[in-house]
């Protein structure tokens, strides 16, 4: 299993692997919003939690179709399905690799972008914590969407349409954690719900994704 993780990370980091695509998108969004909205710190600090969460979500969405499509095209997915690894493990590892190359860099970059958007100082901890808890769900749900659309040519549009509604709870609770944190209110409820969504998605969705992959490989 570690071999698959190492291979996926290596592929992402080599030329053309798509590492940095989501990160660059996140950066561009956070730089453009102050230019579009105007430089007033009050306005920016009010919308910063939402912008940062929407940015992270869309950045995640950008690289989803690569999770299985590349392996499907070059036949690796067929061979992985006949390998001794259970397909559920393959799905989980690939979602983990996606999170390490997309979600984790977003978490690490977010405080810097919070600075650009005048995010209040007390919200930084909650921004990092909410993204840390929420982005794994984005990767796992995204892997499920990628499994559903794996055999389709240009399945990107369908993938986005399928996955976006599933992302909404994570987005709502994630942004809520940050904006409540910015106002100095208690964040316990949205944080617990965010963690619950992630735990549920990580526990259940790999089974659904593996089932869907088996059907799509027929």
């Amino acid at each position: 299993m570690s071999a698959l993780l190492i291979r996926d990370l290596r592929l992402a980091l080599r030329a053309g692997g798509g590492f940095g695509l989501g990160l660059a998108f996140f950066l561009i969004l956070a730089v453009l919003v102050p230019l579009g909205v105007g430089p007033e710190p009050d306005t920016l600090s009010r919308i910063a939690p939402g912008i940062l969460w929407v940015g992270a979500l869309l950045a995640c969405l950008l690289s989803l179709d690569r999770i299985f499509a590349l392996d499907f095209e070059d036949g690796s997915l067929d061979l992985l399905a006949t390998a001794p690894l259970p397909l559920e493990a393959v799905v989980s590892i690939k979602a983990l690799a996606h999170w390490i190359t997309t979600g984790l860099p977003l978490v690490l970059l977010s405080p810097v972008l919070g600075l650009l958007l005048f995010l209040p100082a007390e919200a930084y901890l909650w921004l990092i914590l909410s993204l840390m808890l929420g982005t794994p769900a984005l990767s796992v749900i995204g892997a499920f969407g990628a499994a559903l659309t794996v055999g389709l040519k240009r399945g990107g549009l369908l993938l986005s349409l399928l996955v976006l509604p599933l992302y909404i709870p994570t987005l709502i609770f994630g942004a809520e954690v940050v904006s409540r944190g910015a106002q100095g209110l208690s964040v316990a409820t949205p944080l617990a719900l965010l963690a619950g969504i992630t735990a549920g998605a990580v526990a259940l969705l790999p089974f659904a994704s593996a089932l869907v992959l088996r059907i799509n490989l027929r």
């Binding site: 291979r7 592929l11 080599r14 053309g16 692997g17 095209e73 070059d74 690796s76 061979l79």
Partner: peptide, 9 residues
Amino acid sequence: HADGIKATL
């Protein structure tokens, strides 16, 4: 028909 080869490895 497809060999499952990764181009950048």
